[in-house]
Write a protein that binds this DNA or RNA. Structure first.
Length: 285
DNA sequence: CTTACATTCAGGTTTACCTCA
DNA sequence: TATGAGGTAAACCTGAATGTA
């Protein structure tokens, strides 16, 4: 409630949904390097500046995850220190988000641990791990997360750890925030797409009505004697010199040539409504 | 090549918290 | 002021995809 959609700063002039959310191929983990703006507020410091945001191609390739299997979440800060020494780290919660049964059990275990791993986590809970305590992120935390999301809507483990360290959150919290944020973005985009399609439908319906009226008028006119009286007869019969076919033309042979050999696509009414431009051009921003 | 495991993500759900009538 | 409804966001669950040993 504290954060409206506008406050999210969603940029919704996005791609076509079929391309954006295609499930056949996994979405790119990182935007192209050309679009990757410098990290806001210089979050990670110089030692992580280049390595924390690799290109999508080497996102997974650079992670020898087996080195850190079974790492304890409580060691997250220590692990980040290891990042300074160019040691590549997997998510401390990675053991949590794995196979479902094991994942659930270990998550419960981590719930018991997390009180000590983040200053933002319940300090008054008294160790009741059975009930999850929800915490609102501070405005500063939300701002930094938003700015990071604008640059990269996904995080690699190093980015996640660095961001968690800076915001004094658990890496799992950062991970969850990004997952939820992507879901919100997609939901918002879906709403925008639906609105766009609804307007297209309205335009097509109106155009269909107009054409129906036009057809009815022409039919009425066709059965009227005045229709033939007002109709001017073809003035010339010309033959196309290339295909040697006779065509009716009221003006010149150029019209015949155009009709036979160039054949521009008729500009239908709906095409005038939806000009051949990228879908994005018509979407509200 | 196959298998087991780790990791991440999308999609959906649950739940705590907040606002407002 | 109390309260219930509804909305929102954080946290969670599940299955799929992918990479690696």
């Amino acid at each position: 409630m504290a954060e409206k959609d506008d406050g999210l700063g969603l940029s919704l002039s996005l791609r076509c949904p079929e391309e954006q959310y295609k499930n056949v191929n996994p979405p790119p983990q990182q935007p192209p390097a050309a679009t990757a703006a410098p990290f806001p507020l210089n979050l990670f410091g110089s030692h992580l500046h280049s390595d924390a945001f690799p290109s999508s191609a080497d996102r997974n390739a650079e992670q020898p995850r087996s080195l850190f299997r079974g790492i304890d979440i409580n060691q997250s800060i220590t692990v980040i220190d290891a990042c300074d020494e160019e040691v590549i780290v997997s998510s401390p919660n990675s053991t949590v988000s794995s196979v479902s049964g094991k994942r659930s059990r270990e998550r419960e275990e981590n719930d018991g641990e997390r009180d000590s791993s983040s200053l933002e986590i319940d300090d008054d809970d008294g160790g009741d791990a059975a009930t999850r305590k929800k915490l609102r992120l501070s405005k500063e935390q939300a701002t930094v997360l938003e700015q990071t999301f604008k640059s990269h809507n996904t995080l690699n483990p190093k980015q996640k750890l660095a961001l968690a360290k800076q915001l004094n959150l658990r890496p799992r919290q950062v991970e969850v925030w990004f997952q939820n944020r992507r879901a919100r973005t997609k939901l918002k985009q879906t709403e925008v797409d639906c609105e766009y399609l609804r307007r297209c439908c309205e335009n097509l319906t109106e155009e269909n009505r107009r054409l129906q009226r036009e057809v009815n008028e022409l039919r009425t006119l066709k059965h009227s004697p005045q229709f033939y009286m007002n109709m001017s007869p073809p003035t010339t019969l010309t033959m196309c010199p290339q295909c040697e076919r006779v065509a009716v033309s009221s003006s010149s042979s150029m019209a015949v040539g155009r009709a036979h050999h160039q054949l521009p696509m008729p500009m239908t009414s709906w095409a005038a409504i939806i000009p051949p431009q990228p879908l994005d051009a018509h979407r509200p921003t």
